[in-house]
Design a protein around this nucleic acid. Structure first.
Lengths: 153, 153
DNA sequence: GTGCAGTAGTTCGCACCACGAACTGACCTG
DNA sequence: CAGGTCAGTTCGTGGTGCGAACTACTGCAC
């Protein structure tokens, strides 16, 4: 009781903060001339090249959806399909030089913007938030769709 | 220092938890035979009818995007366009009876699923998380894209 | 009251996204 | 070497999101 009217439940807070982060992500992508999905693809590939199947499970997409996404990104020169030397069926998707620098720029800018969101939180509160959200992310086995910014560790 | 390797920064935690919530939201929508965007529209309209312009700013969509979304939802019988008695140009979008019950069911189920995500957090930790995220949501003026579950207050 | 600027929504054309079903070709096991 | 499986692609369908151009109504200026 005695909650002021600004009080919010965990569920609402999670859903609405997700909405907020999406909007920031989308706007950032837009300014770099890519779609949010392409941005996501680039961010995943920053870590290492992936096979199509792997990418599908990481991004939560069907195989056929991925073919198109990679096609378009390849057409834009951001990504390259390399043959897998071990398996003639398989393909390894990797960033091109252009893709790599765009990914880096997009990633850094997106980090910057997301980092501004908790502006009013103290460093300590940010730490608490990170650790609680981090547990949710780990417990639910959220794939590595976003690298850890090195300076934040 | 002395951080174990599972440690995560705020930025990564926010982005990845958003990814997680999206996935849950999308899967829930899927099971109710609607797209996430339509689900979002229904959730917003649960609170009250909206004009198209209002809806655009709330959902962060361009006018023209909204026309289509409302068209499709109307075609599915979930939503209705009512004339605004005050202004002959304007329109009020409201849930139909079908839309209202679908919205309610979708909303409840989505809440249930999102509520499971922080499963390993104690009640107290959940409270802390809610209040920190709540401040982010308030500070950044995230629109009411999701009602507050009554029982969580 | 007439005229005109601004507002609410729609239309159109475009590119993208996501899916399932059906398919191709390489792998592998018996 | 035959049949099953696995990686990816193709195809068709429907939904999404945008900007530019458009229609129709509102409201203010005069």
């Amino acid at each position: 009781m005695a909650k002021i009217d600004d009080e919010i439940g965990v569920v609402g807070a999670l859903v609405r903060s997700a909405f907020l982060v999406n909007a920031v992500y989308a706007e950032s992508a837009r300014e770099y001339g890519i779609t949010p999905q392409q941005g996501q693809l680039l961010c995943v590939l920053m870590a290492k090249p992936y096979g199509m199947g792997e990418l599908g499970t990481t991004l939560g997409l069907a195989k056929s959806s991925l073919t198109g996404l990679v096609d378009r990104s390849e057409r834009n020169g951001l990504v390259r399909r390399e043959p897998d030397p071990q398996d003639m069926r398989a393909v390894r998707v990797a960033l091109t030089a252009d893709g790599s620098s765009l990914a880096e720029a997009f990633y850094v800018e997106t980090c910057r913007r997301v980092a501004e969101l908790p502006g009013s939180l103290s460093a300590e509160e940010s730490g608490v938030l990170a650790s609680l959200l981090g547990r949710i992310v780990l417990d639910n086995e959220v794939p590595m769709v976003f690298l850890e910014p090195p300076e934040s560790r």
